[in-house]
């Protein structure tokens, strides 16, 4: 199904921790504080993957989390966008050659937007969301 314009104005975000050090979580929470107020654009955090449009994945994928990540990813109804927050999820970051990693997030599920930083600033996360919006708009134009 192709997204409509109202899709962009109502992104519900689900956050998944696949083995992060919690630094990225703190910045995500900072990005939803009144100072940045993403609810202006209809963005809100939801507790269930079934309600989500965007999945934020933080941290490298550790061995135990791989199955869970795949399962949660498939629980999100289409159309969906995956954002990878933090250097860990992009390359492994400080955990780069650790023995218990399945590898970066994009080796497990398809990632649409990468937000680098360890941890990324809230501004960077919001910029990532804007990039995701642009991608959704391209999808709309593409499949119309």
């Amino acid at each position: 199904m192709k997204p409509t314009p109202s899709f962009n104005r109502s992104l519900w975000v689900y956050h998944f921790n696949s083995g992060s050090c919690n630094g990225c979580e703190i910045e995500i929470v900072a990005a939803i504080t009144p100072r940045y107020d993403p609810e202006r654009f209809g963005i809100k955090l939801v507790g269930s993957p079934r309600h989500a449009d965007v999945m934020l994945v933080t941290g490298p994928v550790v061995k135990k989390m791989k199955d869970r990540l795949l399962r949660v990813y498939s629980q999100i109804p289409d159309p969906k966008v995956v954002m990878c927050i933090g250097t860990c999820g992009i390359s492994g970051g400080v955990f780069y050659d650790s023995y218990n990693l399945e590898g970066p997030v994009d080796e497990v599920i398809p990632v649409d937007v990468y937000v680098p930083g360890c941890p990324p600033r809230p501004e960077a996360i919001i910029h990532g969301v804007v990039t995701a919006l642009a991608k959704l708009e391209r999808l709309e134009g593409g499949s119309a």
Binding site: M1, K2, P3, T4, S6, F7, R9, S10, R50, D53, Q75, P77, D78, P79
Partner: peptide
């Protein structure tokens, strides 16, 4: 409107 275009699982 957004929920109406989403997949119904």
């Amino acid at each position: 409107r957004k929920l109406l275009v989403k997949e119904n699982i």
